[in-house]
């Protein structure tokens, strides 16, 4: 038993070593391989987001978009606008249509839908407990197949109470919400609310690689999910900033409003 125990310990130790090596910012790490740009929104034209690519979710959904979120999503320029070469999604503390906060959520559903590819955005995130911005994707069949069967790929989720960490997650049948397959990435010596960072996935048949800047920090394959792999079909992109809800909790007295998520670009490569 002792020998076996030791062996297991050794295995754990070597796995740890591998993990550490795998996560290092070694120059030899290959982060991305798809470099043929097939879609880009650089957010260079002032005004509303380009309607050829983007539409809006308006209101509070049901039960605060399923998460008891506190904001009312609008399409007003106070909440979503393109200016200074950026898409700006702004959460405000204001009474609006029965909610205490407003914000925005835009999506490429029916306009830009993609199966496989490298999907990335360059984003500067806000600060403050209760803020929950995200850059994510849903299966294009989300109207006919209920969630989580349609699949969800969260390229980046961030909680304003934890300014050095983001989450990359997939949800599918048998592995959604609390049982989703997720990994966090923490910046060693920088923050997500003081500088722009690049958040992306490189997604192919039977794999999704997650990267931030020049660090590949996770790979999810069918072997990692305890249910059906639902990621071999087209998905659309969503950008939003929620306020409050089950995951981040409510804003507190230190949360300063308004808070803005700045998106420099969204690009898709193949």
């Amino acid at each position: 038993m002792i020998i076996k125990y030791n062996t297991i310990k050794t295995l754990v130790f070597s796995t740890l070593l591998l993990a550490i090596m795998g996560c290092s910012t070694d120059e030899k790490q290959t982060v991305t391989t798809m470099n043929n740009l097939v879609f880009q929104d650089e957010f260079n034209e002032n005004g509303a987001p380009n309607s050829a690519y983007w539409s809006y979710n308006i209101g509070t959904g049901s039960n605060g978009w399923g998460n008891n979120e506190l904001q009312y999503y609008t399409d007003r320029p106070q909440n979503v606008v393109v200016e200074d070469g950026m898409l700006k999604i702004t959460a405000r503390r204001e009474l609006y249509m029965g909610s205490n906060y407003t914000s925005a959520r835009i999506l490429t559903k029916g306009k830009v839908e993609q199966k496989y590819g490298r999907i990335e955005a360059r984003i500067k995130l806000p600060l403050g407990r209760g803020l929950w911005p995200a850059f994510w994707m849903l299966g294009a069949n989300s109207d006919t197949v209920t969630w989580p069967q349609c699949g969800e790929i969260d390229i980046m989720e961030y909680l304003g109470s934890n300014p050095t960490t983001v989450l990359g997650t997939v949800h599918g049948p048998g592995y959604s919400a609390g049982e989703s397959i997720s990994k966090s990435y923490t910046l060693p010596n920088s923050r997500f609310d003081t500088d722009f960072h690049i958040f992306g996935i490189e997604w192919g048949e039977d794999y999704i690689n997650y990267y931030i800047d020049d660090v590949l920090y996770n790979q999810i394959t069918p072997e990692d999910v305890p249910g059906e792999w639902v990621f071999n079909q087209p998905f659309y992109i969503i950008l939003n900033m929620a306020v409050g809800g089950n995951l981040p909790g409510s804003p507190n007295t230190e949360t300063a409003f308004p808070q803005t998520m700045l998106v420099d670009y969204v690009r898709i490569y193949q």
């Binding site: 300014p163 920088s190 003081t194």
Partner: peptide, 9 residues
């Protein structure tokens, strides 16, 4: 230390 993770409010 040089943390890089402090933001001036």
């Amino acid at each position: 230390e040089k943390l890089g993770t402090i933001r001036t409010i």
